[in-house]
């Protein structure tokens, strides 16, 4: 109810299929959702531009699933303004469902249904569906059209899920951990596929646990922790003004404050690496000690993420 009241952009079910209000595919302001005592989302703001690929990162329990499920129309927000493609998802209007594609993890499918049959069946309800053969080719299942769902390998099943998510030619695609459980080759394939979707001009909101995936696919990364957005930037810029220094610890050396030691390797993050390195190098030179494995570099997205969510 509340979300409907605070809904910013109203558009009737019969509204024409035109881009509405600006270029934002998703606009969320002050979103809150609690399950009893537990606050899952505590004032989340999020904007996804049309054509953008946005990766939503965060530890388990950070509120990712709740946020995505509100955007998909599966759950209602307690408070805040939500607009997805100009619709209030909580109203679950048919016009809204016609324009989104949802690829959830572990969504069921009749075990006995054939691949082509599933695409024809699930595609039938969309007004602007893609050609079944084209979609089969897009996800690399052209050889498996007559196979039953239960005969597919895990990776093929996920590709069928993806095919079902795009059969209706959606403007916005939700991908929930699209490559979890994939072997490296299958993951590469999926990335190419998602890159293909980007080239079709789709807006993509994906959740993932893999930093390399976010790095590779996303135009922008949003990190969610304890129900709030704690970072929002391009993967290259995110927290990267810092520098990471690491080397093998030698006895007697004084480590700077905040350094971690793991299996004999000291690591610290610094915004002034020259200043912080000077005493270490001075000490090493004075004692004629070589700092083994010394490296000075930009943090990986993973470093940043771990730092942020620690």
């Amino acid at each position: 109810m509340l979300s409907a009241m605070t809904f910013e952009i109203s558009q009737g079910a019969a509204a024409p299929r035109t881009p509405c209000l600006g270029d934002d595919a998703v606009r969320v302001r002050g979103l809150r959702k609690a399950y009893g005592e537990h606050v899952a989302l505590d004032g989340v703001d999020l904007t996804v531009a049309r054509g953008e690929v946005l990766a939503l990162l965060g530890p388990n329990g950070a509120g990712k699933t709740t946020l995505v499920e509100i955007l998909e129309g599966h759950r209602r927000a307690d408070a805040g303004a939500v607009s997805v493609l100009g619709f209030d998802p909580a109203r679950r209007e048919r016009g809204f469902r016609e324009r989104i594609g949802v690829v959830l993890q572990e969504t069921g499918l009749d075990q006995e249904i054939r691949v082509r049959e599933a695409l024809e069946l699930y595609g039938a309800a969309y007004p602007q569906r893609r050609d079944v053969d084209e979609v089969l080719g897009l996800v690399g299942l052209e050889e498996r059209g007559e196979a039953k769902a239960r005969e597919l390998s895990g990776g093929q099943r996920r590709r069928l899920d993806l095919a079902l998510g795009i059969i209706g030619d959606p403007e916005l695609v939700f991908l929930d951990e699209p490559t979890t459980g994939f072997d490296p080759a299958a993951r590469r394939q999926s990335w190419e596929l998602i890159d293909g979707l980007r080239e079709l001009g789709k807006t993509i909101l994906l959740t993932t646990h893999y930093m390399d995936e976010a790095q590779h696919l996303a135009d922008r990364v949003v990190v969610l922790a304890r129900g709030t957005v704690i970072a929002n930037d391009t993967p290259d810029k995110l927290g990267r003004e810092a520098t990471v220094v690491s080397f093998r610890v030698v006895p007697g050396i004084t480590l700077p404050a905040g350094a971690r030691v793991e299996r004999g390797i000291a690591t610290f993050t610094s915004s002034a690496p020259t200043r912080d390195l000077a005493p270490l190098l001075g000490w090493a030179a004075a004692h004629d000690v070589e700092l083994e494995g010394l490296s000075v570099g930009r943090p990986t997205l993973e470093d940043v993420y771990l730092e942020l969510t620690a």
Partner: peptide, 17 residues
């Protein structure tokens, strides 16, 4: 079974009434 496997959830996100 369909509900346990998420079939209803899948359908609910599509335009199928």
């Amino acid at each position: 079974t369909a509900r346990d496997q998420g079939l209803f959830k899948r359908v609910r996100a599509t335009p199928l009434p």
